[in-house]
């Protein structure tokens, strides 16, 4: 089963990271899921792949009533992000799925129908969770052509999807980055290969630098907090991406 760690709490407003599954098969990439709760309602952020549904579901259930999850947010269309959708919808057919308009007719191949999807326009949109307003922030071409991140202005938490992801050795189980220089070596190859546009990356760095962020939460690997957030943005800004190797 995955473990849950509360990374932000103010009354019933919470961000819970669902991380590190010791039972995960090695052939599946490790993923982080996040649960945002407010006023008794929940939003599951990048709910994960089909195969890890039991691990994510049980982890969520330790923190929150899964039937109170009103919606899922999918940063993009990848199977490790959203292929569990059919199972979540079977558990709660009223659940909505927020995703880029670009993928709104592709994702129903994983599950859902016309009433399931809230298509996010390219410029982004506000998403409400129990009265709390979150912002879907454009991150197109990082890496997907229709890609969004999620910002919680109140909690100062920024979910960054695949940006900031690191493929860590199995012995590195820390939730937060401890040593930025050592950590970023595990992120470099991933970002060079998976992030396809230097221009999109430049715009993203400018946009994100203007936000007040305490914790940056990627979909894979450790989370960045405090000064490591800006360190990461600066590092990413200078990295040449969209290359096969080197």
């Amino acid at each position: 089963m995955k473990t849950t760690q509360t990374i932000f709490q103010d009354g019933d407003h919470k961000w819970v990271a669902i991380v590190r599954d010791p039972g995960r098969q090695d052939y599946l990439i490790d993923t982080n899921e996040y649960l945002v709760t407010h006023s008794g309602q929940g939003l599951l952020v990048d709910p994960g792949g089909l195969e890890i549904f039991p691990a994510v579901f049980s982890a969520v259930a330790t923190e929150f009533d899964p039937s109170a999850i009103a919606a899922v947010f999918a940063s993009h269309q990848d199977p490790d992000v959203i292929s569990s959708l059919a199972l979540w919808l079977e558990f709660n057919p009223q659940m909505r799925c927020y995703i880029s308009w670009l993928w709104a007719s592709f994702i129903p191949h994983f599950g859902g129908n016309a009433s399931t999807f809230s298509a996010i326009p390219d410029e982004g949109a506000a998403i409400s969770v129990g009265g709390l307003s979150l912002q879907a922030v454009p991150a197109h071409y990082l890496h997907s052509s229709g890609n969004f991140h999620l910002y919680d202005r109140t909690a100062k938490v920024f979910f960054s999807g695949d940006v900031g992801a690191a493929l860590l050795p199995s012995e590195q189980q820390d939730l937060f980055v401890k040593d930025f220089s050592a950590h970023i070596r595990h992120a470099e190859g991933f970002h060079r290969r998976w992030m396809g546009s230097n221009e999109a990356k430049r715009q993203w760095c400018e946009r994100i630098s203007q936000l007040d962020i305490d914790i940056l939460c990627p979909q894979h690997g450790a989370l960045y907090q405090g000064k490591d957030v800006q360190r990461f943005i600066d590092w990413f800004d200078t990295l040449h991406v969209g290359v096969l190797r080197g």
Partner: peptide
């Protein structure tokens, strides 16, 4: 899908909604 739901139910046996699914 049924085998995945069964695995989830084994981890969360108290979930009545999961049992009904």
């Amino acid at each position: 899908y049924s085998s995945i739901f069964s695995a989830a139910a084994a981890l969360v046996p108290a979930s009545a909604r999961l049992r009904s699914v």
